[in-house]
Amino acid sequence: MSKKFNEIPMGGNILEPGSAMQYKTGGWRAERPKHTPDDCLWLKNGTCLLCWIFCPDNAVKIAEKDGKRTYAFDYDYCKGCGICANECPNSCIEMESE
């Protein structure tokens, strides 16, 4: 930070795509989502993913490898908006106070 005029790119351009990742927004959170895997359709049969689609902060981390599916929240970025909990059709996500 605090670079001199000749140490930054021309015209205020930002050359590194997605560099906002350096800024962790998790500190904004008042409530954190908690995922109960039992009825999660993604884990069950690889469908739904409304929480992942609607998450404004890409804080729902899902993966599928060799038929195995995983699910986690990225608390570095989750702002605790609660959209995931509100939209989950099977009420697998609950918001808990930080």
Binding site: P17, G18, S19, A20, M21, Q22, Y23, K24, T25, W28, R29, I53, F54, C55, P56, D57, N58, A59, D74, D76, Y77, K79, G80, C81, G82, I83
Partner: peptide, 18 residues
């Protein structure tokens, strides 16, 4: 669009972009 942006919590614009 990456995480780490400063849109308000729950803003619908980031999902729209996604």
């Amino acid at each position: 669009m990456s995480s780490g942006h400063r849109m308000c919590a729950g803003c619908a614009a980031p999902p729209i972009i996604k």
